[in-house]
């Protein structure tokens, strides 16, 4: 598995297909965030927009090889394991991106409530921000895994499905990503930090189920 992860990481880095999602995220953050804004608002915003970026990364990672190269790796390592490796690389790169962003946001934001009256404890806020970022990355990976090969093969269906599913995962109440991000933003009014432990657990379960379903399908779909 280590060899597969290393191979998939090298593919992603060298193909430079990580760049468009990373740039999109930078644009999102550039528009939405400014120095001196309340910390919890910014953390919630950064976490929420990681979700579509993580889904896009999955889409790029699972399509990084031409079908023949994928078949060669599938014969050597098993098709499900090969697919799992590409999805895990997307998850870890999304998580790394979210972690770096959380640290930057913590450095440039003001640790105050949204009315700038109360102080917000920085370590707790950063901890909650990290969990929220991970929640959104996991849910984004679930969305990406279910809207890319081998589940949806035609781009015409897969891309609208990805956008719609990412939007729903962010706005539908009851979604772990919605709970984590709105928990941070809502707590900003009263300077209370809501640590999204339950949403993280729910997102991890959903993500594991989605990845398992996608991996189980790999040997049942032609390229």
């Amino acid at each position: 598995m280590t060899a597969l992860l290393r191979y998939q990481t090298a593919l992603l880095v060298r193909s430079q297909r990580w760049l468009p999602p990373f740039l999109l995220y930078a644009v999102f953050l550039g528009i939405g965030l400014q120095g001196g804004q309340p910390l919890l608002d910014s953390l919630g915003y950064a976490a929420a927009f990681l979700l579509p970026v993580a889904a896009w990364l999955v889409r790029n990672c699972v399509a990084n090889e031409p079908p023949a190269a994928r078949a060669v790796v599938a014969a050597a390592a098993g098709p499900a394991r090969a697919h799992l490796a590409s999805v895990l690389v997307a998850l870890s790169s999304a998580s790394a991106l979210g972690t770096i962003t959380t640290v930057i946001v913590a450095l440039i934001s003001d640790p105050v409530s949204s009315d700038h009256q109360k102080r917000v404890p920085v370590p707790e806020a950063v901890g909650a921000g990290l969990l929220a970022v991970l929640t959104c990355a996991l849910l984004g990976v679930a969305v990406g895994a279910l809207t890319a090969w081998p589940v949806l093969r035609s781009t015409g269906r897969a891309v609208p499905a990805l956008l719609l599913a990412a939007l729903l995962a962010l706005v539908v109440s009851g979604s772990p990503a919605h709970a984590a991000a709105s928990g941070l933003v809502g707590g900003s009014h009263t300077a209370t930090v809501h640590t999204p432990v339950l949403p993280l657990a729910a997102a991890a379960l959903l993500s594991a189920a989605a990845i398992a379903a996608a991996c189980a399908l790999t040997s049942r779909r032609s390229p």
Partner: peptide
């Protein structure tokens, strides 16, 4: 497995790809 056609659209050198494989 050796496929019928092996497309070269991979971002590695031949040696780099083989080492990974």
């Amino acid at each position: 497995y050796v496929p019928e056609r092996f497309p070269a659209a991979l971002p590695f050198t031949a040696l780099g790809y083989l080492t990974h494989l």
